[in-house]
Amino acid sequence: MRLEPREHSSLLLRAVVPFGSAVVALLACSVLILWADASPVQAFFLFIKGSVGSKFALSETLARTIPLIFTGLAVAVAFKAKLWNIGAEGQLYGGACMATWLGTGMIDLPGWLMLPLLFAAGALLGGLLLLGPTLLKTWLAVDEVVTTLLLNFIILLFVNYLVFGPWKDPMAMGWPQAAPMVDTALLSTLLAKTRLHMGLIWAFGASVLLWLFMRFTTWGYQIRAVGYNAGASRFAGIPVNPVVVRTALISGGLAGCAGVSELCGLKGYLTLDLSPGFGYSGIVVAMLAGLHPLGVVVAAFFVAMLSIGADSMSRALNISNYIADVATAVSLLAVLVSMLLVRYRIRWK
């Protein structure tokens, strides 16, 4: 069996196939639902209803989409430069910590100034957290997969220390959480009586900006060239290492924004359950999107739908909501295989 490159594959095919195969993967998951003694038809009905079937369901899904867009973009831009950032989770918490530090009474500015400041500050710390592993990679060829992954646990334990120790809110009746954000630091709701907040606009704006950046600027051009062929880039005089470092700052910064937006839009105070692994899901989102910044929006919505829909379904049918994780994993695998098959065809013999 051999893989033969296809000479041409249309953009439509490349866009439709990943989502088609994700749907196929979901159908494959019905086996698990059957195994759990539930009816797949009913399960999928509940799944759709629970994720997009009502104004409330849709608002929940969209609210979940926001952090996934940010982390998806963070991963997409890094992967585009072949910088394997597995540390978006930690960078997200870094951004949230920065916002907490500034936004719980230290400074108070009008909202139109406060929020951009918090996003900028959060992005800065997120970027700096990825800077260390990146410099180790460019100087000493230390594998960034290991360093960024392990840094997640260090950061998480540090946040643990903060919310149990110096930042613990005395008014929180013993719960490990930091003081609430000041009112001007909160993102306003987008839709009355739901949890959907302005972060959606920020996230969407970020993806459009990133797309324009990658497509039309010399910096974006450098990132793509370095990612596709570092050797040719070096030969052509592109400063490869500085470009990778710059990419790291952008990537970490976007992941930091995910933390700020969750903190200021949804939770209102720093806790340890700020993110149920958005940083890691960001990898799934970016891969599903084929690392395309606009594709990230769609992929983030899809992954959000999976988790919100599965939550709702599992509550209604009383089956484990781990089915969402399985569905996400299976659809990622299916999409990766299908994307391989869009580029290559299988030849037997």
Binding site: Y221, R224, A225, Y228, N229, A232, F235, A236
Partner: peptide, 21 residues
């Protein structure tokens, strides 16, 4: 293919590799 050109980029993009700045 290894050092002269970036295979995944198109003709336009490869032609400015040395003077994009």
């Amino acid at each position: 293919t290894g050092t002269g050109l970036v295979g995944d980029m198109n003709v336009q993009e490869n032609l400015i590799l040395e003077n994009y700045w």
